[in-house]
Design a protein around this nucleic acid. Sequence first.
DNA 1: GAGTGGTCTAGACCACGTG
DNA 2: ACGTGGTCTAGACCACTCC
Lengths: 237, 237
Amino acid sequence: MRSEPRYAQVAAALRAAIAGGVYRDGASLPTESALCATYAISRFTAREALRLLQVEGLIRRQHGSGTTVVGGTPVLRQSLSDVAELSHYAAGSTFAFREHGLQTLPAARAAALRLPPGSRWVLLSGVRTIAGLPAPIAITEVFVHADLEPFVAALRAGRETLFTQLARLGGFHIARIEQDIAAIGAGTRDATVLQIARRTPCLRIQRTYQDAGGRIVLLSLSTHPGERFTYSMHIDN
Amino acid sequence: MRSEPRYAQVAAALRAAIAGGVYRDGASLPTESALCATYAISRFTAREALRLLQVEGLIRRQHGSGTTVVGGTPVLRQSLSDVAELSHYAAGSTFAFREHGLQTLPAARAAALRLPPGSRWVLLSGVRTIAGLPAPIAITEVFVHADLEPFVAALRAGRETLFTQLARLGGFHIARIEQDIAAIGAGTRDATVLQIARRTPCLRIQRTYQDAGGRIVLLSLSTHPGERFTYSMHIDN
DNA sequence: GAGTGGTCTAGACCACGTG
DNA sequence: ACGTGGTCTAGACCACTCC
C-alpha cells in the first residue's frame, strides 16, 4: 500500500474544501505561506498541490494578487471518463481482422508509436465496416502485448471490442486509456483499402490501453477517411 | 524587455537541439544532473525546463529509465478529460479575435453547422497562437447566440475561454458540450492564415455549448493544421 | 547496486498587483 | 510599502528500472 504524495493529499483536501463550499466561486484560496503553515509543508509542496488544481482548471493564480476559485460548482467533475463512451462511435459497425502473429517491431515503427524498442507484439489488422456502405470507414492495426498471446486466438470479430474481450480473457483491468487524434493524408495502402485518393485528409486515432501498472497491453491505430467519418463526443456537467 | 526565466531558456535550447536533430526520435535526453552541470543550474530549474517540454508532448519521462524524445517534429498536444480541462485549452496559448456583429447565417451554412435556419448569431473570428511559434495553431470561428449579444462587447482575449466568460456574464450554466472532430483539407483562406499549403490535412473541431434547456448558446469551429496539432485525451477508470 | 526521475525541505531574491 | 506568487539554490531521501 503505497501512500499518495503529500502534494496530492493537500490538493485533494483543497479540492474537497472547494467542492464543500468552503471556498466559493471567485473566493480567495489561502496564500502559499498559509498553506505551508496549516499543512506543515514546504512551499514547494504547496505550489505542487496548487499546480495540480490549476491544470484541472479549478483555480486561477495571479501574480501580485493571489489564488482564486474558478468554478466551485461541485458537479463539474463528471465527464466522458467512461469507457462505454469510447465504444459508442463504433455502434452498428463490425470489425473484421486477421492475425499476423508475434512480431518484433522495427525500431522506427516502435518509436513512432512510442512503444519500447525491441518489444514484441501480436499484430492484428482489420477493417471496420458499416452494413450497406461499400467502403470501410476505418482501417485498423492492433498491437497486443506478447504476454497476452495465448488469448489472441480466442478473440472474435463482432460487437464486443477487442480490449474488453482481452480484459475478460486475461483477467485484468484496463486502468487508463490514452487517445491521440491527428489529421494526416492517406498513404497509398490505406487509400487503396479505403477507396479514396491518396493524400485525402484522414483522422488518425491512436489509443493505448494500460493496466493498473501503466503497462501498455493493447495499442490500436485507426485511420478514418475524413469525408466519411466524424468523431463525436459529448460532455455533460 | 524582461528576460525569460532561466528554465524557459534551457527549455528553448533543448527544443532547438531536438528540432536540430541533436536528439533524434526515441533518443535519450541528458539526465537531470547532466543538465544541472552543463547549464549550471539547480535541479529544480532543470526539472522545470523538462516539465515544459513534457506538457508540449516533446519528451517522455520514465521513472527509473530516463527522458526520451517523443517526436522530432514539434507537435502540440492538448490533454482533455473533462470540462475543466476543456476550459483551460492548450496551456500557454492565447486567443485573439475580432467581432463581426449580429448576422443571419446563409441557409447552407446554418445547415452545415446544424443550426436552425434563419437564426441570428454574433460572429467572431480569431486565431490561437502559442508564444514563440511563428504560425497560429488554430483558426477559429465562434457563433454566439443573439440573446447574448449584450455581453459580447465585454469579452476579452486571453486565458479564459469565451464560453466561461459568457456563462459568467450571462449568469447561466453550460450543461452539455458536444464535440465533433473531423479531418478536412485546408481551404485557401485557412491555409493562408495558418501558413500551410492548400489541402493540407487539418483537424476540424466543432463544439456546441448548450444550456440546461438544450439551447445552443455558443458554437465554435476550429481548424488546426495536422502537422502542428494532436488532440490528446485520457480516460481513467 | 548504480543511476534515474519523483518528492520534499528550508531557505533566498525578484516581479507583480494593490493599497 | 507590502504581500502575493514566480523563480531559483543546494541540499536530501525515496522509488523505480536496468544490469
